[in-house]
């Protein structure tokens, strides 16, 4: 059974059973679908930035402000009330961010390798849940449609495969014609980062970034990096030393002393030489 079939069957089963809990998907990048009453309310995956990363990387909220919001809210993973109360984002904006993050993570899981699916009880509260869950079948259809759209690009790309870099240096004057996303991608594409890495770095959806990377590769703005050079290895001149010096060798054992030495008896010598004393 292909990874797609396995995922489709598991999602369908969770939906029909009205699961409230999690469907954990192993693989690369893998991830977790969070269900409430058979509908998907959140998806998290190492392959796509979550709502928190999208907000923090976009600069809308600083790391310090986020930490303060989490403290205020008693340690919740998604301090939505605080975000609205402090004016960092509106309720509608946050709903859009949550839906985007959910759909993007589902796309990332499907675009990768699916090894197995395991439904279970919820271990943690879902991160950034959407108020109205999505039917799992529609979510999977949306992800499959995006995957097909990527494959149909003139320069097909995969979120984890290509590691692009700019074909040349772009001067500041040229940046005006490019648009914000392209400027950011040119600034951060260094031949080490995949589209997935660039999505985290720029705080954008991984699908959005992957499509844009594909277009920029086709237009000759980016090129695929050559295979990476070997990592230079340098040994310390005196070699690698132990953090703690080895313990000193134990002292050589002293020769064992006989337990019972013959005791000299007074007068014994005379007895030997002169016979029994009188």
């Amino acid at each position: 059974m292909s990874g797609y079939e396995l995922l489709a069957r598991s999602l369908d089963s969770c939906g029909r059973e009205g699961l409230t809990g999690e469907l954990r998907v192993s693989g690369s990048p893998g991830g977790t679908f969070h269900f409430r009453g058979g509908l998907v309310v959140a998806v998290e995956s190492p392959g796509a930035p979550g709502a928190e990363a999208l907000l923090l990387r976009s600069g809308r909220v600083t790391g310090e402000q986020w930490a303060a919001l989490v403290r205020e809210s008693g340690g919740t993973r998604w301090p939505v009330a605080g975000l609205i109360a402090h004016g960092y984002a509106g309720a509608a904006q946050l709903r859009v961010v949550c839906v985007m993050a959910l759909q993007d993570a589902a796309f990332a899981i499907l675009a990768g390798r699916v090894d197995g699916c395991e439904p279970g009880a919820a271990r943690f509260e879902p991160p950034a849940p959407v108020p109205v869950g999505e039917p799992p079948a529609r979510l999977l259809e949306d992800a499959a449609r995006k995957l097909a759209a990527l494959a149909a690009l003139p320069h097909p790309v995969h979120p984890d495969r290509e590691r692009p870099l700019p074909v040349r240096y772009f001067a500041d004057g040229e940046h005006g014609e490019l648009g914000e996303l392209r400027r950011e991608l040119l600034a951060h594409a260094d031949g080490r980062r995949s589209a997935r890495d660039l999505a985290f770095r720029t705080g954008r959806g991984v699908y959005t970034v992957t499509v844009e990377v594909g277009r920029m590769l086709a237009e000759g703005l980016l090129e695929c990096a050559p295979p990476p050079a070997p990592v230079p290895v340098r040994m310390p001149p005196e070699g690698i030393r132990h953090r703690t010096p080895p313990p000193p060798a134990p002292p050589p054992p002293e020769p064992p002393e006989p337990a019972d030495l013959p005791r000299r008896r007074p007068g014994g010598f005379f007895r030997l030489r002169n016979g029994t004393p009188r």
């Binding site: 290895v233 310390p236 030393r241």
Partner: peptide, 10 residues
């Protein structure tokens, strides 16, 4: 190395 001297960096 354990004392902080770099050996290799990627």
């Amino acid at each position: 190395a354990a004392d902080g001297l770099l050996i290799a960096a990627d």
